[in-house]
């Protein structure tokens, strides 16, 4: 086993102290200047790589999905194979086009806020934290706490906005809390990400015991918390139970957004006062 010299020990102690000092300052002030500067430099590379990965993924998905048809076509006419390749590429563009079109329609349908589209360029999901990184930041008018959603429903909020990238705390994060309302019954609650909720499951807590919510009810955001605007779909209730102290009800919500399949999102940049 190697030994660490005195000089090395002093150097590492100094580096550790310096990093801890920066950590404490950024934690207390919420100002991550160092992180922002480095993130601004590396996010374009990550954005480019994400685009290549996305393109390859779309191409592979199209190949697998049309594999059966391609085999039949090969048996019938070999020369159609080359045309199928072209078709697959067109279908890839079509799928992406449809996705973008639905997002555009969604952005236009909400007249109470302005949104901008962003690509997901990275994700880090463990049992407690669920963060995605998008390729737009303060340069594109995205601010901290800006709401992130897709055509399917709510994704989360911007926890940190860099110059050309932003970190998004998704609703599956253990520290996330979203004020929510049941569409049918009007019962209110707080949708929280929970430990081990990485598979698209959240918990709606603090529902009044006399609530008329039933399994199958749809849940959407209520404007109560001040961050999330009203009317963005969160998901569907799949289970209702009493909480530990039997004072309120809590429900398991199957979210309409799957954190593992996100590649394009919309970010609210401005709320228009009515």
């Amino acid at each position: 086993m190697k030994k660490l010299g005195k000089k090395h020990i002093i150097i590492f102690a100094c580096i550790t102290a310096l990093i801890l000092a920066v950590s404490i300052v950024s934690f207390k002030t919420g100002n991550n200047a160092v992180s922002n500067i480095i993130g601004t430099v590396i996010s374009p590379v990550q954005s480019g790589t994400a685009a290549v990965v996305r393109g390859t993924k779309n191409f592979a998905v199209n190949i697998f999905s049309s594999g059966k048809n391609a085999r039949e076509n090969e048996k019938l006419k070999a020369e159609i194979a080359s045309l199928n390749d072209q078709l697959r590429m067109v279908e890839g563009y079509k799928t992406e086009n449809e996705k973008l079109r639905s997002m555009l329609q969604l952005a236009e349908s909400r007249s109470d806020f302005e949104s901008t589209a962003a690509n997901v360029i990275g994700r880090s999901i463990d049992e407690l934290h669920s963060t995605i990184t998008i390729d737009k930041g303060t340069r594109h008018n995205i601010k901290k706490n800006a709401v992130v959603y897709t055509a399917d429903g709510l994704v989360g909020r911007v926890s940190e906005a860099g110059y050309n990238f932003s970190k998004v705390q998704t609703i599956f994060d253990a520290e996330s809390a979203v004020s929510a309302i049941c569409l049918r019954s009007g019962d209110m609650g707080i949708v929280e990400g929970s430990s081990l909720s990485t598979g698209g499951i959240c918990t709606m807590n603090y529902i009044d015991k006399s609530a008329k919510t039933v399994v199958g009810d749809m849940v959407e955001t209520s404007a109560a918390g001040g961050i999330f605007p009203q009317g963005i779909l969160i998901g569907k209730i799949t289970q209702i139970k009493e909480d530990n102290r039997a004072l309120t009800l809590s429900a398991v919500v199957e979210t309409s957004v799957n954190p593992n399949n996100l590649d394009k999102v919309l970010v609210i940049t401005d709320v228009i006062a009515k």
Binding site: T16, I19, L20, V22, S23, S26, F27, N32, V34, S35, I38, G39, I42, S43, Q46, G122, S124, H129, T131, T133, S159, F165, K167
Partner: peptide, 15 residues
Amino acid sequence: LTDVMYGRVFGINIL
């Protein structure tokens, strides 16, 4: 890299 792109408190992953 981990801290910049995903970290909650800058520096923890570096250490």
